[in-house]
Design a protein around this nucleic acid. Structure first.
Length: 737
DNA sequence: GAGCGCTGTCATCCT
DNA sequence: GCAGGATGACAGCGC
């Protein structure tokens, strides 16, 4: 049995270390020796030290090397080992340290302070708030993770003690030392490792895919993130007073009598193995109804991303908060897991979670690992939940009923430090929300206004789009470089018979879209292929998802758009003699007539090179005539090219206008979605605040706990700040007593 | 007459 | 090297 024990315990430690190094927090405290003579690699020393501790009256449950370990069946150990794989921690949690009781009814509890404890209720270890915050915020909840040695297969006794009581205890130095060592270990190892993972995650945040993943996972897990100040709204439910506690009986009564089965499962039936077996059966109820489950994931993700993208500089804070929360969960790898499976993330009860990543979490300060509720043991307090991944839906009336359920006066237990580390959102968030929404409303109005301004353009484009599908036969273009010589004359004839040119002179490129075109695509020098070649980036942008592509005609070299004032058949069917057209003479025509050029300018310009050369060869022309003919041809072609160029330029501008129009519409839509999201967030915060007030009032009424409204106000700031405040308030309370 | 848009032309580069 | 397309620049023209 001893080898088996050694095998499993060492294996667990190794697995935990490996997972921790991988950025996943695993509470290895119970597996490690006290601070003195630390030799992690020496299980013998560890066993010795903890065996020493175990022998002490306070050593109960402290060390995994205790004989309890040996008594743990191997399959269960294997369960624990396997449970280490489940590191998904939801971000949206409400953490609370609800119930601690002691068998001897001496139980005084400290507000949500973690610590070692003994079964007799004697103080073993106590950590101050700072330590608690460290643990809870950066991974201290690992103590609430799986701890096989805290698992006796049944109910867990969760006891906390005031520091005063702790100080009054004698013979606890050794245990205190161990406590300090654990604290240091958490700080030096877990915290550093987690920070390292956090930094690694920070370094990856600039990547778009990471942002998407982050947003995706966070969107599911953190509906209470404040997009305005970018702060994770750390909300912790902690006790109000130190000298009150919620008795185990009361908790059991709560569960037995009124607490709904579903939530009872949340709070008690948290066997990781069972959850692992069928996590999906829980996920539905674990999701916050504040977020529409029916809304497509991509839609929500898009909205969240849009919101954060619009928030601008606040994104940094948001990222910080996110990073803090996520990194506290162990780094990137863990984040990826969470994002990949937000459901599992909400269902992984066997892994520690952290308050910073848990804006609203509901966790009990318990050392129990199986989170099971065993009513057969009467000397234990209710392990309300594992600190991990128990999400309470505060819109759920069952949850509210549970929180507001009467607490027996005979109870020696109490919900302790029931404060919320966030000021009333109506006070803090509301102005920010209003300001943000106001600003974005202005942006929205502006965007809509701009969009309307471009609507005319869109209409024009839409109208022109009706013509966009028409184009001319490419092969029929007289200026087409691909046009075969054999088809030149015949095709030109057909073209000339098909089209008429009302305008004299060059056809204006601004009128290009007013003419019908065939469906054969672009013609001439400016082909779609050329367009793609020349404007690759533009076309890529044009075909972007949000860009409503409107086809444009680029058939600039179509004969219709060329400077053809005469039918093509005039030179193809008639003799090549110069035909005087006094009314239509251009400068070149006049020059040609003056030089007695025997061809029309159209022939000179539009004939293919070979035919043109043949034409020149057939006639005996002087050098001046030849030069003039070549100049006419060059200018004519250049004129057409210039027209095409200008036409193309206009089309590009129109396309850009369309792109701007489409982007503005897209932006307006995003702003509307953002407003919707902000509205939802505000509603959620308001509901949460109302719930806080209800809880406070109920506590005042039932428990007669004097507490100020500030104790139930959401207060911003880091955990340390709130914890210090809590600690100070606790001292004040003691002083009053 | 100035301003503006359209057009033609030239020069240049590139294919 | 030639032909021709593309394009910026300039000028002319008409409104």
């Amino acid at each position: 049995m001893q080898p088996l024990k050694k095998y499993f315990t060492e294996g667990l430690i190794q697995v935990a270390i490996v997972l921790s190094l991988a950025g996943m927090h695993v509470d290895v405290d119970p597996y490690l020796p006290p601070p003195h003579n630390i030799n992690i690699q020496s299980p013998d020393l560890t066993q010795t030290q903890f065996g020493k501790l175990k022998n002490s009256p306070q050593g109960y449950g402290l060390h995994m090397k205790s004989p309890d370990v040996a008594s743990v069946p191997a399959p269960r150990l294997m369960h624990w080992v396997r449970s280490l794989q489940h590191l998904n921690v939801p971000s949206a949690q409400l953490e609370a340290w609800l119930v601690h009781s002691e068998s001897d009814n001496s139980g005084t509890t400290l507000p949500s302070l973690t610590g070692s404890w003994d079964v007799d209720g004697d103080l073993v270890d106590m950590e101050d708030s700072a330590s608690l915050n460290l643990r809870m915020g950066v991974g201290g909840n690992g103590e609430l993770g799986n701890d096989p040695f805290m698992d006796d297969g049944g109910l867990r006794v969760v006891t906390t003690h005031s520091r005063n009581q702790m100080d009054s205890e004698d013979g606890k130095e050794e245990v205190d030392e161990f406590s300090l060592w654990r604290q240091e270990f958490n700080q030096n190892m877990n915290h550093d490792q987690l920070l390292q993972g956090q930094n690694q995650y920070f370094s990856l945040l600039n990547e778009d895919d990471e942002d998407e993943l982050m947003m995706d996972g966070w969107r599911h897990a953190n509906p209470f993130f404040n997009p305005l100040n970018g702060m994770q709204e750390d909300v912790q439910f902690t006790g109000l007073q130190e000298d009150n506690s919620l008795s185990t009986e009361e908790c059991l009564q709560l569960l037995e009598a009124g607490f709904p089965l579903g939530h009872e499962q949340y709070l008690t039936d948290l066997d990781p193995v069972r959850m692992d077996e069928d996590p999906l059966q829980h996920h539905g109820s674990l999701y916050s109804p504040l977020l529409s489950r029916q809304e497509p994931v991509l839609d929500l993700e898009e909205q969240w991303q849009d919101v954060f993208s619009v928030l601008g500089p606040q994104d940094t804070n948001a990222d910080d908060s996110l990073d803090s929360s996520h990194s506290s969960n162990g780094g990137r790898s863990r984040e990826t897991r969470n994002f990949e499976n937000p459901i599992q993330q909400n269902l992984s009860f066997d892994q520690p979670s952290f308050s910073r990543s848990s804006p609203i979490s509901f966790a009990s300060e318990t050392a129990a690992r199986d989170n099971s509720y065993n009513s057969n043991q009467d000397d234990t307090s209710l392990n309300v939940s594992n600190s991990s991944n128990v999400n309470l839906n505060f819109n759920d009336p069952d949850i509210i009923d549970f929180l507001l359920s009467p607490i027996s006066e005979s109870s020696n237990g109490i919900i302790r430090s029931f404060s919320v580390e966030e000021p009333s959102q109506s006070g803090l968030f509301q102005p920010l929300l209003e300001e943000s929404m106001l600003g974005e409303n202005s942006l929205l109005d502006l965007a809509l206004h701009n969009g309307s301004g471009h609507s005319e353009v869109s209409k024009k484009e839409d109208q022109t789009d009706s013509d966009s599908g028409l184009s001319l036969d490419y092969s029929q273009s007289p200026v087409s470089p691909n046009r075969s010589e054999s088809s030149c004359c015949s095709s030109s004839s057909s073209v000339s018979s098909t089209f008429s040119f009302p305008e004299v002179g060059a056809v204006g490129y601004t009128r290009i879209k007013e003419e019908p075109m065939d469906e054969e695509g672009a013609v001439g020098g400016y082909t779609p292929e050329l367009n793609k070649m020349d404007y690759t980036n533009y076309m890529q942008f044009q075909y972007s998802p949000w860009f409503e592509h409107i086809g444009h005609d680029h058939t600039y070299n179509h004969p219709h758009y060329t400077n053809q004032r005469k039918p093509f058949n005039e030179y193809s069917e008639e003799p090549l003699e110069y035909k005087l057209q006094e009314d239509l003479d251009t400068k070149d025509e006049k020059r040609a007539r003056a030089m007695r050029i025997p061809f029309s300018t159209d022939h000179i310009i539009n004939l293919p090179v070979e035919e043109f050369n043949e034409l020149l060869a057939k006639h005996r022309l002087s050098e001046a005539q030849l030069t003039l003919i070549r100049d006419i041809r060059r200018r004519g072609k250049n004129k057409v090219a210039a027209q095409n160029c200008r036409r193309r330029k206009i089309d590009i501008l129109q396309d850009l206008e369309h792109s701007v129009d489409g982007l503005q519409r897209h932006r307006a839509r995003l702003l509307r979605e953002k407003l919707d999201v902000l509205h939802s967030v505000r509603e959620m915060k308001q509901r949460l605040n109302d719930l806080y007030q209800e809880v406070r009032s109920r506590l005042v009424e039932v428990e007669r706990i004097p507490c100020s409204a500030m104790d139930f106000a959401l207060q911003p700031g880091n955990d340390d700040h709130v914890s210090k405040s809590r600690r100070k308030s606790g001292k004040k309370q003691k002083d009053k007593e």
